[in-house]
Simulated scan of single mutants.
Amino acid sequence: MSIIAQVTRAAKTLSDAVDQLDFAEPVTYVYNPLQYAWAAHQQYIAQLNPKGCRVLFLGMNPGPWGMAQTGVPFGQIAAVRDWMHIDAEIGKPAHEHPKRPVEGLDCGRSEVSGERLWGLMQSRFPVAKDFFQDHFVANYCPLVFMEATARNRTPDKLPADEREALTAVCDAHLAALLDAIEPEFAVGVGMYAEKCLQRVRGEGEMQVVRILHPSPASPLANRGWAPQATQQLLDAGVWDASLS
C-alpha cells in the first residue's frame, strides 16, 4: 500500500473511531472535520510526498476558524485555498453551534495560529509543492470541543475517562502516521504535541523536537512567533541556515 493510501486509511480509521466516543458537559458541541470536510482533507493528504517526508509537524486539535472550516490542520483559509489550491466542497457538522458556523472556504474569519504557521511556511516555500516535498503537518486529535457559550475546550481539559478513551485512538493514529511517513524529525507545535510524540515515538531514530505554539493566547508567541520558531528549527537541525 502506498504511503498516501496508508495515511488516508489511518485518517479514516481515526475519524470513525472518534465518532464512537461520548463527551459530557461542559462540552456540548463536537465537530469532526475529518467527517464533514473529508473531501478537503483527502486533497490535503494528496499533497504529501509519496515517498514520505523528512519533517512532521504535529498540532493539538483544530481551531474553530482553521481546520474546523477547511479540514486541514492549522487550516487558515487563504493558505488552504490560494497556496495549497484545495477546492473541495465542505459540508457541516450535524450539530452546529450558532456562534461557530462552518462556512468552509467562504469563511471570513482567520485562524491566527494557522495564519502564523502557514505564513512562515509560505515565506520559506513560496510554492506549496516545495514545502510538501520534505514536510507534512498533522493534528494529534481531529475534534473541536465547544461549550454552550462557544468557548473552546482543548483535549487536555477533558475529564480523565474521556481523555483516556480519546488518547487511545489518537495514539493509534499517530503511530500509524509515523510508521507510514517515517520522518527524521517530528516537531511538536507546543508542549502537548511534543509529549504525544514522545509517548508514541517507538524505538526508531526519529528525533522529537518542539517549537513555540503560535496561539495568540501565548504572550511569547505574540512577540514575533515566526522568528522564534525559525530559530528553534535551525537550532534543532530541522532546517538549514543556508536556506533561511
Rank of each mutant, 00 (worst) to 15 (best):
I4C: 05
Q6C: 10
V7T: 00
T8R: 11
K12T: 09
T13H: 09
A17R: 02
D19E: 15
E25M: 05
Y29M: 06
V30Y: 02
Y31L: 07
Y31Q: 05
N32R: 02
N32L: 08
L34V: 03
Q35P: 05
Y36V: 01
Y36F: 12
Y36T: 06
W38E: 15
A40D: 00
I45Y: 03
I45E: 00
A46E: 15
A46N: 11
N49A: 11
P50M: 11
C53Y: 01
L58H: 04
G63F: 02
M67Y: 04
M67C: 11
M67S: 10
A68C: 09
T70C: 06
I77P: 02
A78I: 02
A78K: 07
A79V: 00
V80K: 01
W83S: 06
W83K: 05
M84Q: 01
M84L: 12
H85Q: 08
H85S: 13
I86M: 00
A88T: 04
A88Y: 02
E89H: 06
E89N: 05
K92I: 07
P93M: 04
H95I: 09
P98F: 09
V102P: 01
L105S: 02
D106N: 15
C107A: 14
S110D: 11
S113Y: 02
E115G: 15
R116K: 12
G119K: 07
L120F: 12
P126A: 04
D134N: 13
Y140V: 00
F145Q: 03
A148E: 12
R153F: 10
R153G: 09
D156A: 14
L158T: 05
E162C: 11
L166W: 01
T167D: 15
A168S: 12
A176N: 03
L178P: 03
A180N: 02
A180Q: 06
E184L: 08
F185Q: 04
F185C: 03
V187Q: 06
G188P: 10
G188T: 03
V189Y: 02
K195L: 14
Q198W: 07
Q198H: 13
R199L: 08
V200Q: 04
G202H: 10
E203K: 11
E205V: 08
Q207A: 14
Q207E: 11
Q207D: 14
V208N: 05
L212F: 08
P216M: 09
L220H: 13
A221H: 07
N222C: 14
N222E: 15
R223K: 14
W225C: 14
Q228S: 12
Q228V: 07
T230K: 08
L234Q: 07
V238T: 08
S242P: 05
S244I: 07
S244M: 09
